[in-house]
Amino acid sequence: MAGKGEHVIEVTLPSRPEYLLVARLATSGVGLRAGLTVDDIEDLKVAVAEACTNVINHAFKKDGGSGGQRIQLRLTAGKGELTVEVEDEGQGFDPEDLKKSQRSGLEGEGGLGFGLMKELTDTFRVESAPGSGTRVIMVKRATR
């Protein structure tokens, strides 16, 4: 539920690369409403697209990409900040594997995308477990 002064926008997208543009456009529009600067929005657009691209490339691998998979995008615009949650109901993974990837630098399987998400946002968190889907939560605050 939205807090006082917050606006919540939810978008459900097919887990397909042609809809990445829609995720970026939603981020851009809601980011403006939240008072983010153009540079803040450019950063967040990349972070959101990275999270969505990970869903497209990895979340439903075991399903063979049959086409029924979805990406849930939830954007919460507060005063001077935007929280974006990117969620899927895919195969999930052990977050420990992500930590190992980050310890080995920005390169490696998925490491670059997660590295960009972390660097381009003010708060970045991943909730996942094998078989339980994944939720990425990112917060971007307006640069003064």
Partner: peptide, 9 residues
């Protein structure tokens, strides 16, 4: 105008 890790790769 836009680039992310896929393009970098």
């Amino acid at each position: 105008t836009y680039l992310d890790s896929t393009g970098l790769g």
